[in-house]
Design a protein around this nucleic acid. Structure first.
Lengths: 204, 204
DNA sequence: GTCTATAATTTGATAGAC
DNA sequence: GTCTATCAAATTATAGAC
C-alpha cells in the first residue's frame, strides 16, 4: 500500500547496519541489534556480508561516499568566494544536522584505524579542493579584496565552524545550558551566521 | 633510582585506565589491556574498582574535572574581551593538543549516555561562563567597539575553531593532504591565528 | 593486597534443515 | 534465501590460596 516495493534484503541489512554502527561504533555495535533492526536473524548478516568487519567496511565506505561529494560539489563551482562560503555553510550544516552521527563516526573509526580511508575509496577527496580554492583565495588577496590569510587555515576555520557545533552537541548543549529545542535553534541560526562571521573576518 | 617513589596501585590503575578508555572508548576498552598497562593483573582492577563501569566512571569524571576548570580559569578574568580570546585560544589549543583524545572521548561517551555529566559532577561548568562573558560582549556591542553578535554563537565559534582541528585531525589531515609533521605545524599556527581571525570578525 | 584459576555471560560465526 | 540451534572464542567478574 504505502511502499511500492520491498527493498532487497542486502539493502535492508546495510541500512540497519549504518544506523547501529554510526551510533555505537564498531566496538559497541552488536550483530544481534543490527539483525533485529533489519527484521531478520543474525545468520543472514553473515550470509550477505560474511563478517562483522566486512559489514562495517561497507557502512564506512557508504558514509565516506556520501560525505565527500557534498563538499566538493559546493566548492568546485565558479562562484565568488563569498558565495561559496555562504553556500557551503548553509548546505553543509543542513546536511550534517540530518546525519549528525556521521562525522563523529568517521573521525572515531579513523582514529582507531588510520588506513580506513585507503580501503574505503581511492582518495576521492583529493587535492582538488585545495588547488582550486587556494588559487582563488590567493587571487583575492592579491587583488586586495580580502585580508592576507593562509588558505588552509581558512578552510579549517570554515569546516570547524560548520561541523563542531553539531557533533559536539551533547557537550556544548550543557556548557550553554540549553535544552534540545533551543540548541537546535542555535544550529539553525548558524546556517547563515557562520558565513557572515567568516566573511567579516576576511573582508577588507 | 629514577622515580622517587612508587605511585600507589589505585592511581596506577586509574592512569592506565585513562589511557585505554580514552583511546578505545568504553565499548572498545578491555580490562586485560588496562591491567597489562598498569603492570598488574585483572583481579586487581576489580579489587579496587569493582567493575568496568565503575572504573570507567572514575576515568570520565577525571577527564571532566581536568577540562572544565581550564575553560573557566581563562574566561573568568577581568581582561578585555580581545585579551581573553587570545588567551583562551592559545592556551586551550595547547592543552587539547597534549590531550587530543580527551574531547572526543567525552563527546562520544556523552552521546552514548547523556546523563554521564550529572553523575560525573554537579555541573561545575555551570552558567558562570555565560553570564559574565555575555554581559561583557553585550557591553562592548553597546559601546560600539565590536559588531552586533549573538554572544552564544561567538562562544561556539571560538570553541569550534579551537577544538575541532585537533580532534578531527585524522580526517582533516587527509582532506588537506598533510603528513603528521606539517599538520602539527598548522595546529601550532592556530594558537595565534584563530584569535586574529575571531577579532577581525568582530572588531569595528 | 596480590595472585592463579575458573565461573558466567556475551557475542561473532557456522552447520544444517527447509 | 531464510531459519533454528549450536559452537568457539572472548571477556567481565569472582573464588580462594598465599
Amino acid at each position: 500500500m504505502t511502499k511500492v516495493k520491498e527493498q532487497n534484503t542486502e539493502t535492508v541489512i546495510l541500512e540497519a547496519a549504518k544506523e547501529v554502527f554510526q551510533h555505537k561504533g564498531m566496538a559497541g555495535a552488536r550483530m544481534q541489534e543490527i539483525a533485529d533492526k533489519a527484521g531478520i536473524n543474525k545468520a543472514m548478516l553473515h550470509y550477505y556480508y560474511r563478517s562483522k568487519d566486512k559489514l562495517f567496511s561497507a557502512v564506512f565506505a557508504s558514509a565516506i561516499n556520501l560525505m565527500a561529494p557534498k563538499i566538493m560539489k559546493i566548492i568546485n563551482t565558479e562562484d565568488h568566494l563569498f558565495a561559496k562560503i555562504e553556500n557551503f555553510t548553509y548546505k553543509y550544516i543542513d546536511f550534517i544536522s540530518k546525519h549528525s552521527y556521521m562525522p563523529l563516526f568517521i573521525i572515531n573509526e579513523l582514529n582507531r584505524n588510520p588506513n580506513l580511508l585507503k580501503d574505503a575509496f581511492a582518495n576521492k577527496i583529493e587535492n582538488n579542493i585545495e588547488q582550486k580554492l587556494v588559487a582563488q583565495i590567493d587571487d583575492l588577496i592579491a587583488k586586495g579584496e580580502i585580508r592576507s590569510i593562509n588558505p588552509e587555515q581558512l578552510l579549517l576555520h570554515i569546516i570547524s565552524l560548520s561541523v563542531f557545533p553539531v557533533i559536539g552537541k551533547p557537550l556544548l548543549k550543557n556548557i550553554l545550558q540549553k535544552d534540545d529545542k533551543s540548541y537546535k535553534q542555535l544550529i539553525k541560526e548558524r546556517q547563515t551566521c557562520v558565513a557572515e562571521f567568516v566573511i567579516n573576518a576576511i573582508k577588507l
